[in-house]
Design a binder for these strands. Structure first.
Lengths: 241, 241
DNA sequence: AAGTGGTCTAGACCACCTT
DNA sequence: AGGTGGTCTAGACCACTTA
């Protein structure tokens, strides 16, 4: 028996095109397919031992995530995951998150805010104990509750679509020393703003939260690349594999 | 010889999955497939006389536009294009547009702003002469120049992805009497803010511009549905065709 | 346990780029 | 023209839903 974890591709993704999507994404992020390289369906077909169609689908979805570019009759190529790309992603994230938090602030009832406090408590516990997986999950849950309350499924799916990418980056580069404490503090500030129903403040904090996350991720990435210079630049605009 | 009109699917879309996408989109918007109805690839396959794979692709893309929902192993269904949906779309549009205008305000050089003035002049001319197609096109060009200058291709493609939908809605419901004059006025205000490099003001105007567009479209739609009540509610949660 | 309908495969087809 | 590689088709396969 296979169970889908409530709509997201969070756990074990059953259909081939979803599994292929995961593999391609992780291989792009780990540098197997360098920026600019072309992703030919025939190659990938041999590599993953599946036919071309699921690969096409996976590539389309990855285009939705911003990781690849697909042109009609011309195939797919890897979008460069450089500082600019990460900044762009987080800038988008920031404004949409702000939008959703603003609306959530208007629409959430007290019991939902109470639930949020509970998740935050569990998050602080897991983060304090240094459990990365659990805290990533709880962090996701924290924001998810807000997104659902904002009652804008279109915006929510945009954000959650990018979450896969952000998650992968986080698992690759980790968090800075003090970032966890900052996250906790920012979440607390957000909770306070929600408690007071202060839309302006809540929106501002959400934006700031994304700015800080962006800055931290860029720092972490800078460090990782500085320490291990060959890691993501093995080939410049090279062949597929 | 077939020529692609500069990357967008603006003109004649060659590959089957793009043509199918256009047809499904227009049939959803014209009410052939009512909200909530399931889109079965086998049915569509017979209807359009193509095999299932291009249809799958088209549905995936339409999911990206927000028009349909696709669940793994469970197929696609039509997202309700109701007031809430339109509001959500324009809310997203507003914040991303704001983001791009803010950055464009920082990054644009004088010649680009000059070009913008030129497009605006042509827009006012076409709009004054009541040329709907030309003015829609020039309006698109106006915003496109700003988006390109903002140097955030990820955000730009999100916006332009939704443009197809907005365009279809506009062609269906048209503009309100005074809306064209408002657009001209709002564009002029935006130009003035850009001339002065006033980021805050420019961002605020961009947001307002989207709010007004949203309000106008909702009014137009309300009128159309009021005048012709059966048009989009022929079936409630009905079968496919 | 059968049925419906989504997914995958292999190979043919055809658009675009190179010579 | 030839080659590469994206796209399309038909049918088999298999997951999920009905009875």
């Amino acid at each position: 028996m296979t169970v889908y974890p409530s709509g997201e591709s969070g756990g074990i993704a059953d259909p081939v095109y979803l599994r292929v999507r995961e593999r391609i994404r992780s291989e792009i992020l780990s540098g197997v397919f360098p920026p600019g390289s072309r992703l030919k369906s025939a190659d990938l077909s041999k590599r993953y031992k599946v036919s071309q169609m699921p690969i096409r689908e996976a590539l389309q979805m990855l285009q939705g995530e911003g990781l690849v570019t697909v042109l009609p009759n011309r195939g797919a190529s890897v979008r460069a995951v450089d500082n600019r790309f990460i900044e762009n992603m987080y800038d988008i994230r920031g404004v949409i998150d702000g939008l959703l938090v603003r609306r959530a602030c208007k629409l959430m009832n007290d019991s939902e805010i109470f639930e949020l406090h509970g998740v935050q408590a569990k998050y602080e516990e897991a983060a304090g104990a240094g459990q990365l997986d659990a805290s990533l999950e709880l962090n996701k849950e924290f924001h998810h509750i807000i997104y659902v309350a904002a009652d804008n499924p279109e915006a929510m799916s945009m954000l959650e679509c990018h979450w896969g990418l952000v998650d992968s980056l986080r698992r690759t580069f980790g968090f800075g020393q003090e970032r966890i404490q900052e996250i906790i503090s920012e979440h607390r500030q957000l909770l306070r703003a929600l408690d007071r129903r202060d839309e302006e403040l809540a929106t501002r904090i959400a934006l700031l939260h994304c700015e800080q996350a962006k800055a931290d991720l860029l720092r972490q990435r800078e460090n990782a690349l500085g320490a291990d210079p060959g890691k993501l630049r093995n080939i410049r605009k090279g062949r597929t594999a």
